[in-house]
């Protein structure tokens, strides 16, 4: 066991948590989107780290897919955010709560 290996995992865990925390406390939908990116990056880091420790290339390949997913997610997410903002400019996530109960 190398200390640095643990370092990668710890780093990614913290990064993931920061992303999750950000999504829970920030109200700007765009920032929330960025927080999701943070979380996905943390996962990427985990994958590559695990791949390295396992001596397996698959970890890196998977990251490619995550990247594609992240890109697609951003496109869809931004599309929706734009559509919402068109109806109500400057709306935050807390402002859109017509639906409840």
């Amino acid at each position: 066991m190398r200390g640095i290996d643990a370092g990668y995992l710890v780093l990614s865990a913290i990064l993931f948590s920061i992303g999750a925390f950000g999504l829970l406390v920030r109200r700007n939908p765009l920032v929330m989107l960025m927080c999701v990116e943070l979380m996905l990056n943390a996962v990427n880091l985990t994958f590559v780290a695990f791949g390295m420790m396992l001596g397996d290339i698959a970890g890196q390949v998977i990251v490619m897919f995550v990247l594609v997913v992240a890109a697609a997610e951003v496109v869809v997410g931004l599309g929706i955010v734009v559509a919402v903002s068109r109806r109500k400019p400057g709306a935050t996530a807390d402002d859109i709560r017509v639906l409840r109960g």
Partner: peptide, 17 residues
């Protein structure tokens, strides 16, 4: 229980968390 369903998306995310 309905009180929880207050429309705040962040609240829902909190439940997931």
């Amino acid at each position: 229980l309905r009180q929880f369903q207050n429309g705040y998306v962040r609240r829902y995310a909190l439940a997931i968390g």
